[in-house]
Structure formats: structure tokens, C-alpha cells
């Protein structure tokens, strides 16, 4: 998705001179094409995320559309107060790009695992939060939103080539996208982990469990109407996210399920703790958090049995 992001940004920058790119010294072998194409609109600010957001806020107040780039943890957590008191409070078009949500940095360990970025961003008023599921959707989402008036957080995954079958690059702000329809269970996923969730849906289908699967990439504005329509049709909704089970997609769906009186049970799958002493590859870490395709499918089967 990072390649799709930079390719799309280069295309947008060609026709929109307001677009700029800033990085806090990350994105080696990703951002260079932009730097070559628009050297006067590219700034490596050094390892200084707080300053980067402040600079972007000042630039945005003068009419620029600055994209700030770093690994998702550093892009959001380190300068969180700058984001809150800057582009959020002043409603300015700063675009915060965080790469590699969840366990995508694998062995890099807990400092690089963004497991709360969606929670802390989606509670900020007027901050649009988008986590595309694949590179086609990332390109569509960036094109569709890059010049919205307020600030945006994009969580951009590291998977480059995978595409979610049936998604076909669709994206609409405040909507979810259905990629599979079935009557037994509703599965909702966000971001790169959609690859695992979709594989789980296929394996359930082999066991004659028919799932409806929705990809939520616009978590704020949230797809309230779509969720309110879908949730009452199911006894069980399962959320899949590479994020703590608190505060992200699972929390959103639970809020809506309760709020619209759906009667639907919500099972939230996601990271439960960061305090594991063991490190591993992305696949290992996902599996350890119950987010591999097999473990997602097993959790769904078990939950369906529980509710009878």
C-alpha cells in the first residue's frame, strides 16, 4: 500500500501544487520518487515528529496540503498533542500518514506495533480516519479524500500486492464495502488484516458457514447507517482488527450494535496485550493474537456454537 500511496500522491501533486510531503526521516526506498519529482515540496524534517505536525499546521493555515509520513506509532502517538491542538482544533487540512498498523513490523517489536492508533485518532472531533484494506482501495481513498477541508489520518499497510477479492478498489467515506454475502454471521474487518479475515471467511464457507463480510476502511466518519442496517440481520457480528480490542473497530461496532438496539452479539478479535515477551514475524505475531486465518475461523465457529 505504501507504493500505491506514493504513486497516487505523485499523481495528485502533478495537478495540485498545494500538495507537499514531509517525513520524520522514514520511508527510505518509498518516498524518493516524490522527492525527485517535487524536490521543492518535499521535506525530511529529521527525527522530530512533534515539530513536523506543527510545521504542517502552519503550512496548512497558509493554503498548503501537507502529508506527514512516519511509522504509524511515531506518526500518531509521539505528536498526539500537536495533532489535537493543531489541525484538529484549528480544523486544518493536515494529512497524517502512518505506515504499518498492527504487527506489520514483526520483529521490530512493541515500539513499532501500532495497536491503539485508530482508538486515539477516531475520538478526535473532525479528524477523518481511514485504514484501507489493500493497495487499490488505498489509491481510491487517497484520491477521494485528499482535499477534504479538515485533517485526516491514513493508516497505510505494508502489504503491497494483495487485493481483497470483490473489493475492487471501492471506497466511500462513511460507508462500508460488502465483499461477500451470507446469512450465518457478519464479519467486519479493517486494514491489512482483511486478507486474513477474508481467508477465514472462505474456510468457513467450505464448512457451510455463510458469512457476510464488510470491509470498514472509513472508521471516522463511521458507517453508522450501513451498520445499523446490517447488524439487526445477524445474531453474531465478529470484528477483526490488528489493533487492541478496545477503542478501534470492535468498540465502534459494539457502540453501534447497542445504540441501534440490534440485539446482535459482537465478538471482537484483535490484539489483547502487548506485554508478550516473545517476538516474531508478522504472521507469528498475528497468530499469537488470534488473528491468523485459522484462528479467526476457529473463533467464529466457537462463537456460533456458543450462541447455538
Amino acid at each position: 500500500m505504501r507504493k500505491a500511496f506514493i504513486k497516487t500522491l505523485i499523481e495528485i501533486a502533478r495537478s495540485d501544487p498545494r500538495v507537499m510531503l514531509m517525513t520524520a526521516d522514514l520511508g527510505f526506498m518509498v518516498l524518493e520518487d516524490f522527492q525527485r519529482a517535487y524536490p521543492e515540496r518535499f521535506f525530511n524534517v529529521g527525527v522530530a515528529e512533534a515539530n513536523m505536525i506543527g510545521l504542517a499546521t502552519g503550512l496548512a493555515s497558509c493554503g498548503y496540503l501537507p502529508f506527514t509520513y512516519s511509522i504509524a506509532t511515531f506518526a500518531t502517538l509521539r505528536p498526539y498533542e500537536q495533532i489535537r491542538n493543531g489541525p484538529v482544533l484549528h480544523h486544518l487540512p493536515v494529512r497524517i500518514v502512518g505506515t504499518g498498523g498492527g504487527f506489520e513490523y514483526g520483529h521490530a517489536g512493541p515500539t513499532h506495533a501500532a495497536l491503539e492508533d485508530l482508538a486515539i485518532t477516531r475520538i478526535q472531533p473532525g479528524l477523518t480516519v481511514i485504514a484501507p484494506a489493500d493497495h487499490l482501495q488505498a489509491a481510491t481513498a487517497i484520491r477521494a479524500t485528499y482535499d477534504l477541508p479538515g485533517p485526516i489520518y491514513y493508516r497505510i499497510g505494508k502489504n503491497e500486492d494483495y487485493t481483497v477479492p470483490g473489493l475492487e478498489g471501492r471506497f466511500s467515506l462513511g460507508r462500508l464495502n460488502l465483499v461477500r454475502e451470507g446469512k450465518d454471521v457478519l464479519i467486519l474487518s479493517i486494514g491489512s488484516i482483511t486478507a486474513e479475515a477474508f481467508a477465514a471467511v472462505e474456510s468457513l464457507s467450505a464448512d457451510a458457514i455463510a458469512a457476510t463480510m464488510g470491509v470498514v476502511s472509513s472508521i471516522r466518519p463511521a458507517p453508522f447507517d450501513d451498520l445499523c442496517e446490517l447488524l439487526p440481520k445477524f445474531r453474531l457480528a465478529v470484528t477483526v482488527e490488528e489493533h487492541y480490542t478496545e477503542g478501534g473497530l470492535g468498540s465502534l461496532v459494539a457502540e453501534v450494535a447497542a445504540g441501534c438496539g440490534s440485539g446482535c452479539r459482537v465478538l471482537r478479535l484483535g490484539a489483547r496485550t502487548l506485554c508478550t515477551p516473545k517476538l516474531g514475524s508478522m504472521s507469528y505475531m498475528r497468530d499469537a493474537s488470534g488473528l491468523s486465518r485459522d484462528r479467526i475461523a476457529a473463533s467464529v465457529r466457537e462463537a456460533l456454537q456458543d450462541i447455538g
Partner: peptide
């Protein structure tokens, strides 16, 4: 930082 962004703009 905000002022530096203005100056840069």
C-alpha cells in the same frame, strides 16, 4: 513549530 510552518509557507 507552527510559526516555522508559516515562515516556510
Amino acid at each position: 513549530a507552527y510559526g516555522a510552518g508559516i515562515a516556510l509557507a
